[in-house]
Design a protein around this nucleic acid. Structure first.
Lengths: 149, 149
DNA sequence: TAAATATAATTGTATATACAACTTAATTGG
DNA sequence: CCAATTAAGTTGTATATACAATTATATTTA
């Protein structure tokens, strides 16, 4: 029965849209981190690419894309900047199509310098969301895909 | 004691960063909606601006920014496109600085046409996250700020 | 093994987003 | 009531992001 009308559609989307809410939360929370670490000359996006690369030791672009759920074109251009800044080194890989990324010493130092600002942002994010809710988001992301190769 | 070293920093950020996880979730989930509604010629970002405008009846840009936690410059350019498509009308406001946005008939029809695709995406997002987790995200966003003027 | 197919990354183009600077209009204080 | 300040939007510039098309390399298959 009842084909919905636009007014009902508006109401339903406004009240329930998961995407709108994740987008909004993401803008708020990413903003906290970006403001905090901007004085260090990097963004939260860049910091997390450095962190994943460092954690892996050596990483092919595709590995990082899988872990961060990031498109290859996006990563490609982000890596360009990180290489320009001397934070990531590129080495030829066994597979001639894929090269190998490695966190440089300077990249590692950059993470170290950014850490206190990251930590403050992390605390602000927890304060904004509430401890339990922040943990919930971490758990949900971990469960869905985050960090898995 | 113990000043943390870069390796510990990497580990801590990798395991705990809320921003990284929200960004990742957002990319995954927004992608589901964008793929679904793309054939209709709009994005999930645009659809939600239309929905908020429609729900408010008439809205000043700042109202929409508050509700969606969106920067004014971002909204400004998004609204340009929606006006170009004939989905939103602009009227002069009492306050000469702020104009008034209104969902047009065609905008309302666009929401109606997009609704089935939105609904499918919403279901896919629930399936990806799990019912309980999806509800949790909606609740967290609602609690923090979403939709409040 | 040569051709067909598949995979990895990059580049062109477009949207989403923000900050800083600027413009215009309202408000407030003297 | 006018000058100074504040508020709302827009525009310049930059990063983040994705899709489609392209390039280069591997793999598969006939």
């Amino acid at each position: 029965m009842s084909k919905t009308n636009p007014v009902d559609n508006i109401e339903e989307i406004a009240e329930n849209c998961v995407a709108a809410r994740l987008r909004s939360l993401n803008r708020m929370v990413s903003g906290i981190y970006d403001v905090s670490i901007r004085p260090l000359g990097l963004t939260i996006s860049q910091l997390n690419i450095l962190v994943v690369t460092g954690k892996l030791g050596t990483a092919k672009p595709k590995d990082i894309c899988s872990i961060l759920q990031l498109g290859p074109s996006t990563l490609s251009r982000n890596v360009d900047k990180l290489v320009s800044n001397g934070w990531i080194d590129i080495q030829p890989g066994e597979d001639g199509r894929a090269h190998v990324l490695k966190l440089s010493i300077r990249g590692s130092e950059t993470i170290g310098r950014a850490y206190p600002a990251w930590k403050k942002a992390q605390e602000k994010a927890h304060a904004l969301l509430g401890e339990e809710q922040a943990e919930s988001i971490v758990a949900i992301a971990n469960q869905v895909a985050f960090g898995k190769r």
